[in-house]
Amino acid sequence: MTITLGAILRPQLPPERLRSAVRTADEAGLDELWLWEDCFLQGGLTAASAALAWTDRLRIGVGLLPVPLRNVALTAMETAALHRMFPGRLSLAVGHGVQDWMAQVGARPDSPLTLLSEYTNALRALLNGERVTTSGTYVTLDDVALDWPPQTPAEILVGGIGPRTLALAGRIADGTVLNESATPGRVREIRAAAPAPHRIVVYVFAATGEGAGARLARELDRLGLTGVGVAGDAETVAAEVRRYADAGADTVVLLPTPDDPDPEGFLRFTAEQVRPLVK
C-alpha cells in the first residue's frame, strides 16, 4: 500500500494564522496541506501562494476552485505562475462550487456540468502552452496563450459528488477529489470506473483528543452524514486511512471538525502520529 497523507486547514481559521499553521505542517513532516476556497473566507490561490513561499518542501492542495467565480484565463495565469515558482508542489482541483454561493454573486450557471467541462478543457490547453480559440456556452477565448506556461505538465483535478460530475472527472481530469461524504465502498466504485492512471483524493473527517467523539457526531449530524469519519487515537485514525487506501484512494486528507480546539495540533497529530502508522 502506497498512500499520501494530508490534512486540511479549514478557511474558518483567520488568514493571519495561516503562516504559523503552514510552518507547523512543514516542520512536522506532513505530506500535503490542503486549503479551501469557500465563500466568503479566503482566496484559494492567494493562500496557496503564501503557503508555498513560507515552505520549501510541503505540497499544497487547493480543493477546490469554484469555476463560476473565475475567468479561466486568470486561473491559468495564476496557476502557471505557481507551478513555475514552486515546481512539483501544487495540487489544484476545480469544481462547481456551492450553487447557493454562486447565486449570491450572480455567477450561478444554468448548466454547471457544461461550464465545468468547457472550463477544464480550456484550462488544460492553456496550461499545456497551447494557443486557444473557443466559443462555448460559457467559455470564450480568442487566440489566447500563456507567455509563461508551466515547464512540466500541470495536474488538474476535478472535485465532485454526483455521478455525472464524477464521470466527467474520469474523462477529462488527471484525478478526482471526493469530499467527506465518500465511504470506502464509494471510493472502490470510483476506482473501478476510473481510467489508469487517475489520482483519487478523498477527504475523511477525523477527530482526536478530548471530546473527539462528540465533536465528530455533532458535525456529521449537522451535515446529515452517516457511516463516515473517525474519532480516536492515532492507531484508530490510521486504521481508517488504511481502509480508504485499500479501497483505492491515492491520497487521504484528514478533515478536522470546525470546532477543533487546536488546528495546529491537528496538523502535528496527522504528520507525527498517524503518518508513521500508514507508511
Rank of each mutant, 00 (worst) to 15 (best):
L255H: 14
F269C: 03
P195G: 04
L216H: 05
E78S: 09
Q12S: 15
I8T: 15
V139M: 00
G136L: 03
D147H: 05
A145P: 02
A238I: 11
Q104N: 14
E27P: 00
T152P: 11
S91T: 15
L267S: 01
A76D: 02
V132S: 04
G6L: 12
T152Q: 12
R218I: 07
D262Q: 00
P66Q: 03
A173F: 05
V230D: 10
A193W: 00
R215F: 04
L64I: 14
T226F: 05
P261M: 02
I172R: 00
G227W: 12
R108S: 13
Q12N: 13
G209Y: 02
G97L: 04
A107L: 14
A247V: 13
R23Y: 08
T270Q: 06
G6R: 10
A245H: 10
L157H: 05
T152E: 11
A247I: 11
A245K: 11
R188Q: 13
L127N: 08
T165I: 03
H83W: 13
G170Q: 00
A21R: 03
L157E: 06
T208A: 13
G175L: 08
T226L: 09
A47Y: 06
D147Y: 07
E118A: 02
L90Q: 08
V94M: 04
V230H: 09
G61I: 05
A103W: 05
P109M: 06
E272M: 02
W54D: 08
V230S: 08
A173K: 02
W34F: 15
Q99E: 13
V241H: 05
D174F: 09
R89D: 11
I3D: 00
K279N: 12
P112E: 00
L30S: 06
T236P: 11
L116G: 08
R57A: 01
T114W: 03
E235P: 06
L168T: 02
C39D: 15
E155V: 14
S111W: 00
A25W: 09
D143C: 05
A207W: 10
G248P: 07
Q12M: 14
R186L: 14
E32P: 01
A103K: 14
D233I: 01
D260A: 07
V132G: 04
L65H: 03
